[in-house]
Design a protein around this nucleic acid. Structure first.
Lengths: 213, 213
DNA sequence: AAATTCTCACCTAGGTGTGAAACT
DNA sequence: AGTTTCACACCTAGGTGAGAATTT
């Protein structure tokens, strides 16, 4: 996943569908992005994979919370729509003051979705102590870079596996795969968690990039 | 003001600043557009003015309410920002199903702003019976057309008068004047109404249209 | 050498005026 | 004749990848 100083849109964007909310309750829905480990990664071209290349410390950096602009809304409203975080931008600028999500390059991350039940009178800025339901999907893990490491990478298709809940697709969407120029049909899968909500993550449809023929 | 079948953005857009709200109360803010009279107008070029050219009946057409997308929000939130209705589109298509404001061509209209105090749990679709404070400014009156009536109209400056609360500027912004290619500085004025809020309408800055030199 | 930053040309979506054509 | 509709070229804002330049 490309990150830049000015902020780059996440692609594909995280989209989510929520079920089993209380239609009359008010909720906010937010996303943040958590480091998967404390390793630094390097892409080794001849073996076509990411290799560990040192350690880092994420401990002092609390992740930025990205509250969905429709928040707060009723459960009814949230359940009617696909909740898309397609405006979210990623940056490697630790001094960023435009509300973008700050990540380190060459690290592995995974987005989290929070459903927060709270009074509509209070404006949400950070995660409250309770009333928060958090979900995360290993299929959405990715590796950050500031630029493509070599010329060939765009032409390599990482998207051959099917995405389904029944078999592990971990790594399928990792790193550059999210920039693949190849056509990937709309995939969706459902998960039931904590016996209360279940989610459907719809992965953004990838179109053939115009710059490729 | 141009209106089209597909919907045309209102220009200049209505912008409003609200004061003296209860910071902790929840409000929605909405706009609609009311006919000024039941006359049909025709632009008479040689006398450079709009002349009455018949009657119409507005009675059966309830105006569409255009709720500001930030609604509902706390008084505090509303008072911090300039509330802009710049996404609003006008149409002459009475069958419009895209939520645009439906107007008749060749008629005079004036926008209204509604401040509605209500529970954030209910979603606003039409004006409730109470808790509504409505404001309107004669300076924002305009006449609708579907196309410019002649080639010269853009080159005629309608914007010579000062806009201020101290003297009547009715008509200054009427009809084609909202499409004037001439530079008009940011004007604002305040009004105190009902002893509870006061408003500042900020008229959109008009820039010299690129197609004129 | 590896990674980041910068500039730039390209693309796209959506809003705009124009003039020709069509409608009333 | 007056008014509306339509197709179209233009403009703009904002997002994008490529490659050069710079930093580490």
């Amino acid at each position: 996943m490309i990150i830049t100083k000015a902020g780059r849109r996440m692609f594909p964007s995280v989209r989510v569908k929520v079920h089993n909310l209380d239609p009359d309750q008010q909720y906010s829905i937010a996303m943040d992005i958590m480091p998967v480990d404390s390793k630094r990664y390097r892409y080794v071209y001849h073996s076509s994979q990411w290799m560990v290349a040192g350690n880092t410390d994420h401990s002092c950096v609390p992740p930025r919370l990205c509250v969905h602009p429709d928040s707060p809304s009723s459960g009814q409203t949230w359940m009617r729509q696909v909740i898309s975080f397609d405006r979210v931008k990623l940056t490697n600028n630790e001094m960023d003051d435009r509300g973008h999500i700050i990540l380190k390059s060459m690290h592995k991350y995974r987005p989290r979705i929070h459903v927060i039940q709270h009074s509509p009178l209070e404006t949400l800025v950070s995660l409250p102590a309770d009333g928060v339901y958090t979900f995360s999907f290993c299929e959405t893990q990715f590796t950050t870079v500031t630029a493509y490491q070599n010329q060939q990478i765009n032409r390599t298709c990482f998207c051959t596996s099917e995405i389904s809940p029944s078999h592990s697709s971990r790594g399928v969407l990792e790193s550059y795969a999210w920039h693949s120029p190849f056509n990937l049909d709309f995939k969706s899968f459902a998960m039931e968690l904590q016996g209360m909500f279940h989610f459907v993550i719809i992965l953004a449809k990838m179109l053939i990039n115009n710059s490729f023929h």
